[in-house]
Computed example of a mutant assay.
Amino acid sequence: MKHQTLEELHQVAEVDALFPAMTRRQRLEHWAMLLERNPERCLAAFPGTEYMTLDVRDKAYSLGSALSIAFADPTLCAEGLKNDTYGEAKRFFELTDWQLHAIVCHCHVGGTMKAEWAAVRVRSAIGIEGKLFSKLREAIAHWPVLRIFAHAGE
Rank of each mutant, 00 (worst) to 15 (best):
R123P: 01
L63D: 11
V12T: 13
A21R: 11
S68T: 15
S124N: 10
A72R: 12
F93T: 02
G64E: 04
F133L: 14
L63H: 10
I103S: 08
Q99K: 03
S62F: 08
N83Q: 07
R41N: 04
A141D: 15
D16L: 13
E88K: 00
M52D: 04
E8H: 02
D84W: 02
A102S: 12
K90N: 09
W31I: 05
D97T: 06
V145T: 09
T23Q: 06
R137M: 08
E14F: 07
F71P: 02
T53Q: 06
A141Q: 13
L43M: 10
A115L: 01
C42I: 02
R37H: 05
H106P: 00
Q99C: 05
A102V: 06
A32N: 12
L6C: 03
R24Q: 11
V56D: 11
P144T: 13
L67P: 00
D73K: 02
E94W: 01
S62H: 04
T112F: 09
W31D: 00
C77N: 12
R147F: 09
N38D: 14
H108Q: 08
W117I: 12
C77E: 07
Q99V: 01
V56L: 04
L100E: 03
H108A: 11
M1N: 14
G111R: 08
F71G: 02
F149H: 05
A45P: 00
H10Q: 09
T96R: 06
D58H: 11
A70M: 03
E50Y: 15
P47V: 06
S62G: 08
